[in-house]
Amino acid sequence: MAAASATVALLDRKLLFVTGKGGVGKTTVAAALASLAADRGKKTLVCEVDAKGNLADFYETGPTRFEEREIAPRLWAMSMDTEASLRQYLALQLKLPIVSRVGPLAKMFDFVASAAPGVKEIVTVGKLCWEVRESHYDIVIVDAAASGHIVSQLAAPQAINELVQVGLVRQQTGWMLDILGNPAQTGLVIVAIPAEMPVSETLELRDRVASETNVDLAAVVVNRVLPELFSRGEEDIFDRLDQPGNAELIDSALGGPARPLLDAARLTVTMRRSRTEHLERLRGAVDGKVPMLYVPYLFFRSHGLRATRQVAESLSAELGY
């Protein structure tokens, strides 16, 4: 699998699931990757799976729905709706016109989905795989479930395969497994930030994905990397500036206390240092096996289209475009 990661360029795959611990910028990275793919001439579908649904904010566009909508040249967006997906699936695949007359399909679906874990997941994954199989898009990028739930999402076809012995659902899982398991087509992108818990979760997730699913880990994106403020020599100079005599000299030159400036620099140096430790742990475990992409901390815009564009630029540079 490691070999595949190295040989198949990230955006040459057909289906990318982007996941990560809550709060690390999973949606930002998914939105940025999709923007980048579209900019590079690929017909791209970006799909948000989470019911929380704020992908639209990342493009400054109106709410996204189950029906795909072109929100920028070559860039199409949609939100997963499991019931709509099931309806579409029944109509297209099983040719079951009767469905519309059955009435409370939503309730029945809710019931079945509650009774049989994996049904909601497979309807989600199935729709995405189907878009890939039918080649409607050059690439499908999924703002997928957070790291706690992604494994059950990706493993759903396998789980259903084992749970349901006969029936049409069973017949439908084989081709999904083929697409998910082909590293030339499908890849998982884990987003992390240089902090203890997100790094630990990334490493645990990597192991779980390898043992419980057949999906290839395509890349690890490290988001919000603080720039290095001082080189080693400069840090020595800074330490000397932060001495009584020098600090007062700066005070008088600036006509007021330089303390906040010195404290802010100290804070950045400390934050950067503790983050570097976590980054090194991640790098030690992943680097060389899976491509790592770095996205700098954004000071000026933390969200919205501008932030998406900036992250896309960073990823573009990291991917060597």
């Binding site: 079951l96 029945m108 079945v112 009774a115 012995q165 006969v166 029936g167 049409l168």
Partner: peptide, 23 residues
Amino acid sequence: RPFYQIADRILGSQFLADIAEFF
């Protein structure tokens, strides 16, 4: 009846029976 027919076709009757037994 149509309700069960569809449920059967989608999930297979054995699975449906399992669900029912469980509930």
